[in-house]
């Protein structure tokens, strides 16, 4: 049987190689962007507005655009997403047709490519509702895109904590809403926050849908009706039009740093949920 064990060792080695290869891909991408981009990062780069279409100056307006658009998206999506998660887990019968339909739509929504959301946002918000290329159009389009993530993570968090708490609270004569508000939501909060953090990551990185709905103006967005360029859109345009490789690297570097931080925070918040459940 020495042959079999030799073969087993070989297979173990191959599987380890697969795992290591994944780590190398990730390390390669992140390492390369950080290595090439770190030198462009400076306080000026972050605080100065771009000039001459991004050849000079920093990226401050695109940072503001990103934050602005993300906040608007969260403002619209979080209440709706968490609200429907509460409804699906605490009020609806899980076998009811309506609950099944909503779950199915949420899954479908999660699978639709961002370019299709972009087309929709363009024809609906920009043209039909007359919002033009604006932070609002982009934010609302983004809100629809992150809705499934927020709802699903909230549903999972509620499902994970609710069972016994729900029975105990209802048995004390609490109403559904009292049970939700006082016991279930506080204990599910870390899971809900995880979903929100992951959505921020998605909003920061989204490009295709934003170009078609928020435009690509380099001006500083003040009103929600102003057009705006996000960091990701900026990176795309700089790279595609060969405007400034150095500044493109700086922008990419900043995005990657943000994404790494966001992922770390999401993990932290998730581990807090599991700890609370113990």
């Amino acid at each position: 049987m020495a042959g079999a064990s030799g073969k087993d060792k070989l297979l173990t080695g191959i599987f380890w190689l697969a795992g290591i290869f994944i780590v190398l891909i990730l390390a390669g991408i992140i390492g390369y962007v950080l290595f090439r981009g770190a030198s462009s990062l400076s306080l000026d780069f972050i605080l100065q507005p771009p000039s001459r279409a991004g050849r000079l100056g920093g990226i401050s307006t695109t940072i503001v655009g990103t934050v602005y658009l993300t906040l608007l998206a969260l403002l619209a999506a979080v209440p709706v997403g968490v609200g429907s998660a509460i409804y699906l887990e605490e009020y609806a019968h899980s076998r009811s047709r309506f609950a099944k339909l909503v779950n199915l739509t949420a899954e479908t929504l999660a699978g639709i490519p961002s370019i299709v959301f972009g087309l929709f946002g363009f024809v609906f918000f920009v043209i039909f509702l007359g919002m033009g290329w604006s932070v609002l159009s982009g934010g609302l389009t983004m809100a629809i895109m992150i809705l499934p993530t927020i709802t699903r993570t909230a549903q999972e968090a509620i499902l994970a904590v609710a069972g016994e708490y729900r029975e105990n609270s209802l048995a004390l004569g609490a109403s559904r809403w009292q049970t939700v508000r006082r016991v279930i939501l506080p204990s599910a909060l870390p899971g809900i926050v995880t979903g929100i953090i992951l959505s921020i990551g998605r909003a920061v990185g989204e490009t295709a849908a934003i170009i078609l709905t928020a435009g690509s103006s380099l001006g500083m967005p003040v009103s929600p009706m102003d057009p705006a360029r996000t960091m990701s859109v900026h990176l795309y345009i700089m790279a595609m039009e060969g405007i400034s490789t150095e500044r493109a690297f700086g922008t990419a570097c900043l995005i990657v740093v943000l994404i790494v931080i966001i992922n770390y925070l999401a993990n932290l918040s998730l581990s807090r949920l599991t700890k609370a459940m113990r």
Partner: peptide, 12 residues
């Protein structure tokens, strides 16, 4: 009519 369950489940 109050109820005590099998597994003590204190709220967090």
């Amino acid at each position: 009519v109050g109820m005590v369950f099998q597994k003590p489940s204190v709220f967090p």
